[in-house]
Design a protein around this nucleic acid. Structure first.
Length: 314
DNA sequence: TGACGCGCACCAT
DNA sequence: ATGGTGCGCGTCA
């Protein structure tokens, strides 16, 4: 017999009833449920513009193999009327969190579940029923992971034409934005939701200003802080050269310093380093990829892009 | 201290 | 119009 942990979620119809029905199906599929957590209500993550979720976690024993177990729970999802579609409202969602102590990393199945450490709606209920259980990957106990998660910044993301865009927020301040994955507590606070809403509008080509968000500069050197603050005042749809920005920031010959500061910008988009271009009418660099700088400038400038960068064929 | 970098001006072709 | 060469400026190791 194998010890397994499953996580259940529902955000469509009678959510708590859906979970009860799923428990019924699970317990009649060769899975012996051991402990069940309370069912909690959480805000959705992944797509913030949908209904709250009911979530719960259970421990169980089964003689099924990992793949048989996967097939079984996907069968239950289908039986209960779940339709395909990532990040869409769902009647029921069942995930395998643990399967004994095995570590599995295939296209089809990842065990332990790859992001359970960042999800309060898994760790919270799991902490309730199995705080001493150990994560075979990190070697840490659930209670330790849970405690760590509570002190992590909140994170969220949107999908854009140029890949996912991630944000993290702590103490009401934006800590970081990035085109690269940011680890953190996957929950939508009002600030995260507001920020993602605005980013979505921005990437749709709307003229959006982000200056009402406060940024956490505590890990930023003082001069860079000043540079970023000045740069934030450069409005949507305009550009500025590295040297001109240097002047505005009080370092008349510090164009290259500006380049360094841009390369390390912890807040792409919100601190609009994509608006900073070379004096000779070329683009300059962009740490997350020059295609993205081109994309953002075209988004903001429209046809004027080709006046400013006549040499660029893109 | 010294190397480094999302630039710039100035001079060469 | 391109292509090299110092220069200058803050960071970080």
């Amino acid at each position: 017999m194998h010890d397994v942990v499953l996580a259940l979620g529902s955000n469509k119809g009678d959510k708590k009833e859906n979970i009860k029905r799923a428990l019924y199906f699970i317990s009649h599929s060769g899975i012996r449920i051991h402990k069940v957590s309370k069912t909690i209500i959480t805000s959705p993550w992944g797509n913030w513009q949908q209904a709250d979720f009911a979530n719960m976690v259970l421990t169980a024993k089964t003689s099924l193999s990992p793949y048989e177990l996967l097939k079984t729970i996907k069968g239950i999802e289908r039986t209960m009327g779940r339709t395909e579609g990532h990040m869409k409202p769902r009647i029921i969602d069942i995930d395998i969190i643990f399967f004994d102590n095995i570590i599995l990393n295939t296209e089809e199945l990842e065990i332990p579940h790859p992001s359970f450490r960042e999800r309060i709606f898994v760790l919270g209920p799991l902490f309730e029923i199995a705080p001493h259980l150990k994560d075979p990957v990190s070697g840490k106990s659930i209670s330790q992971l849970y405690k760590e998660l509570l002190s992590m910044p909140y994170v969220g993301h949107i999908e854009t034409e140029k890949g996912s865009f991630f944000v993290s927020v702590k103490n009401g301040m934006v800590l970081k934005t990035s085109f690269d994955y940011i680890r953190g507590r996957q929950e939508y606070t009002p600030i995260i939701a507001n920020l993602l809403d605005r980013l979505k509008m921005y990437f749709n080509g709307e003229k959006v200003d982000f200056n009402d968000f406060s940024l956490d500069f505590s890990n930023v050197p003082p001069l860079y802080r000043k540079i970023y603050t000045v740069l934030r005042k450069i409005p949507y749809g305009t550009t500025i050269s590295y040297s001109h920005l240097a002047e505005l920031a009080g370092i008349p010959k510090g164009a290259r310093t500006i380049g360094n500061a841009m390369a390390k910008n912890p807040f792409p988009i919100l601190v609009p380093c994509h608006r900073v271009i070379r004096k000779d009418g070329t683009l300059g660099g962009f740490s997350s990829g020059i295609e993205r700088k081109i994309f953002l400038l075209k988004l903001e400038l429209g046809d004027r892009f080709f006046d400013i960068f006549p040499k660029n064929i893109h």
